[in-house]
Amino acid sequence: MAAPWSLGLCRRAGARALSAVLHSQPRELCLSPPRRYLSNTEGNCLQFKLDERTAHSSLDLFKKDTGVIYRILGLDPSHVQDNPERFRDWAVVFGDGRVESGRHYWEVTVRKSQEFRVGVAEAAMSREDCVGTTSCSWVFAYVQRKWFAMTTNKMVPVSLAGKPERVGLLLDYDAGWLGLVDIQKPRVIHRIRARFSGPLSPAFALWDGELLTHSGLELPEGL
């Protein structure tokens, strides 16, 4: 079992959630009602569901595999179908979509979660690792009411982003970056630069609460 969370370390699934959380209320990142999107380029509407074959035994999918909830006890690993695609040590699940070109946008609704990661990873990433700790995964991590951009186990603080309710992710595969989007504006708050060289999958890690994904969205106007 890994030590309690600290910068640069990813806690293993099943570890206790953070017991102390800051009481200050930062500026809300995204509280806007559903908005209308306009398409700039054809073929940019990535549609995906969460892939149960990849889900760690502590993660339970719901709402037709578009949502995921963290179960503290989780399922008995011996009762989970053995699959080489499944994450075994970390509370991670992939989306079943694959991206090899273009710009793609999706959103995530956050419910009662104080620690999670959202982003992308190479579809062939080792299931022994956690997203954000390797050179083939790029995520935005939220913990202790702070945001970080994370890859290769290095974490960079993200400013101008408060407590999440719903966030957007914009992937520009050809230009080589993943952006965290404030959907109120909309605008890209922070970009993670990378050189993508293979198929990418939407990636999620969760240690409490639940996340709901919204895919098949067209690019927001102005992005």
Rank of each mutant, 00 (worst) to 15 (best):
K112V: 14
A175Y: 02
M155T: 15
E122G: 09
W138H: 02
T133L: 14
R103Q: 10
V143R: 11
E128C: 05
V143H: 07
V108C: 04
L160G: 12
S135E: 12
R191Y: 02
G176P: 13
G168L: 04
S126K: 07
E122C: 15
A123Y: 01
V139I: 11
V181W: 00
D174R: 10
G102M: 08
S135H: 09
H104S: 10
R166Y: 00
V158P: 08
S113C: 07
T109Y: 00
D129I: 01
V139D: 01
V167E: 00
K154E: 14
L170S: 06
R187M: 14
A123R: 04
F116R: 04
A194F: 03
I189C: 06
Q144H: 14
I192Q: 09
L170G: 11
E128P: 00
Q144A: 15
F148G: 02
W106V: 13
D129R: 13
V158H: 01
K163Q: 13
I189P: 04
R187E: 13
I183K: 08
R191A: 00
V120K: 09
G176H: 08
W177D: 14
R145W: 06
V188D: 09
M150P: 10
E165T: 14
D129V: 12
R193V: 11
V181M: 06
S101A: 15
F148P: 01
D174N: 14
E128L: 11
G162F: 05
H104Q: 06
W147Y: 06
R117Y: 09
N153P: 04
M125R: 08
G132W: 05
D174K: 11
D129Y: 07
R187H: 06
V156A: 12
F116S: 01
V110G: 01
V108D: 03
A161V: 10
S159E: 15
V158L: 09
K163C: 15
R103D: 03
Q114M: 12
M155N: 05
F116H: 01
T134L: 08
E128W: 05
E165R: 12
W177K: 13
L160P: 02
L171E: 04
G168C: 03
G119T: 04
Y105P: 01
A194R: 02
V143T: 15
W138F: 04
G132M: 08
R127S: 04
Y142E: 10
A175K: 09
D172E: 07
K163L: 13
V120S: 02
A175D: 12
M155W: 04
P157G: 10
R127E: 05
K146G: 14
L169G: 04
L178I: 03
G119Y: 02
L178H: 01
T109A: 14
C130N: 02
K112I: 09
L178Y: 03
G119F: 02
A124K: 05
D182W: 08
S137K: 00
T134G: 09
R166G: 02
F148M: 10
P157T: 09
A123K: 05
V158M: 00
Y173T: 11
G132D: 06
D174F: 05
D182L: 10
R193S: 15
W177Q: 12
F148D: 04
